[in-house]
Amino acid sequence: MKWRLIELETKNAFEAMAYEEALAESVAGGMNPTIHFWRWKPSAVSIGKFQSMEDDVDIKNCEKQGVDYIRRITGGGAVYHDYDGEITYGIVAPETILSKDITHSYKEISEWVINGLKTIGIDAEFKPINDIVTKGKKISGNAQTRKNNIIVHHGTILYDVNPEKMFSLLKVNDEKIKDKLISSAKERVTSVKQNSSVGYEETYYAIKDSFLRSKEYFKGKWTDREDKRAEELIKTKYKTKEWNFER
């Protein structure tokens, strides 16, 4: 089956989440499996499906800094998506062409990322459940959900990290340990920039090429139907308090 590629685009948090859900419905209805890339503008914090927005996100600081906040349909933790510091990828495909086994599909998609990083000189490995690490530090995080036998998988490649900014947007129960968390994040998290001299664009091309390796594909666009459905989901779901504050 031919894959559809949607090249790197810029989306705000609400569009990003809405298009992904619209895409899942579209693929369930027969659309080609799709690989798409985006960056977040404005930068945003996304939280996992089971997290609490009020517990985990410093909403006041997000608003002060012009950072959006949103709940994902996937589990996992809170992520700060910096416009300049991250490449986000999404893969939506039937289980039949990836894997029915969840852990296996994480591993399979992570291999695409790992091979892409290799071409820019970064040796990385898959760390279950959902991370990719280089020299023991996280460089990519992933999450997925499944609906109607369709896999919706998304992940981020950290191009540049700023733990100070990240923790200014996330809520830490005990302010006294904030400094400790920042130093610990610096020890646990790394970025392309810290491991390679390649630029943002070059990193994107390397990852994209690796994702498409050995696949038949065509460069596509969102269909009118997907545009329309995403617009609807923005209004009825992703911008609503009911969704973002459901836990």
């Binding site: 996992g48 499906k49 089971f50 997290q51 609490s52 517990d55 349909i73 996937t74 589990g75 996992g76 933790g77 809170a78 969840i102 459940i129 959902n130 999450a143 959900t145 499944r146 609906k147 836990r247």
Partner: peptide, 15 residues
């Protein structure tokens, strides 16, 4: 009871 956190559960509605 309310359970929150950064875990994964498939299908999510099960929570």
């Amino acid at each position: 009871i309310k359970i929150t956190g950064d875990f994964f559960l498939h299908p999510e509605e099960t929570l």
